[in-house]
Simulated scan of single mutants.
Amino acid sequence: MSITRINPDVLHVTPGYHHVTVVSAGRTAYLAGQCPLGADGVLVGLGDFDAQVDQVAANTMAALAAAGAGPEQVVRTVIYVVSGEQAVLSRVWARFQASPLAAAFTTASTLLGVAQLGFTGQLIELDVTAALP
């Protein structure tokens, strides 16, 4: 079995982890939690759930493409939202459903309200697993 770790050039530089890990056994890709950071590593959409969902969706599409997959190959998602309000969670879910990543959410998905995420001002994070073609 081999493991390939990828940091696509179009995504921000990480502090040690990889955006994408591909395992040959079963050809599965495990994406690092995708955050609302631009390629420059700066948080996008401070205080704006919609802008952060859009950036997370774009980053996830880039990471999936680097692994040779698209949203149709996603087999699991976990969405983390810094909010305990049902209306906010529903709004985030609907925004992802209307994004270019929408097909990823037709699979096993979890939506969680959490107290805090890793970057100051971060409201959204997305965890994705994909079965590679």
Rank of each mutant, 00 (worst) to 15 (best):
A39S: 08
D48C: 05
F119S: 09
G16S: 02
S83P: 11
H19K: 01
M61V: 15
P36E: 01
A63G: 12
P15D: 12
L31M: 04
V53W: 04
Q116R: 15
S109Y: 09
S2C: 11
V53C: 11
D127W: 03
L123G: 12
R5S: 14
V74W: 08
D48G: 05
L89N: 14
R27Q: 10
I79L: 10
A39Y: 02
L43G: 04
T4I: 13
Y80D: 15
N59K: 11
A58M: 09
L111Q: 13
V81D: 08
M61L: 15
P8C: 04
P36R: 01
D127L: 02
L43Q: 04
F105L: 11
V20F: 02
T106Y: 08
G38M: 00
G26I: 03
E72F: 05
L101M: 12
V56D: 13
E72P: 04
V75Q: 09
I124D: 11
Q116K: 15
G47H: 02
H19V: 01
G47C: 01
S2E: 15
A98W: 06
V42A: 03
T28A: 00
L123R: 12
N7G: 08
L123E: 09
G45V: 01
I124C: 11
P100Q: 12
T21Y: 00
A103L: 13
G84D: 15
Q97I: 08
P15S: 10
V78E: 12
L89S: 14
L132H: 10
L46V: 05
V44P: 00
M61D: 10
L112Y: 13
V20S: 01
L132V: 10
A67E: 09
L101H: 13
P8G: 06
F105I: 09
I3C: 07
T4S: 13
D50M: 00
G33C: 02
P133Q: 05
G47A: 02
V128H: 05
A131R: 07
R91T: 15
T77V: 05
V128D: 05
A63C: 06
Q122C: 08
F49N: 03
R91I: 07
P15E: 09
Y30P: 00
A51T: 08
E85S: 06
Q86E: 14
L126C: 06
V92R: 07
D50Y: 03
A65E: 07
H19S: 02
I124M: 10
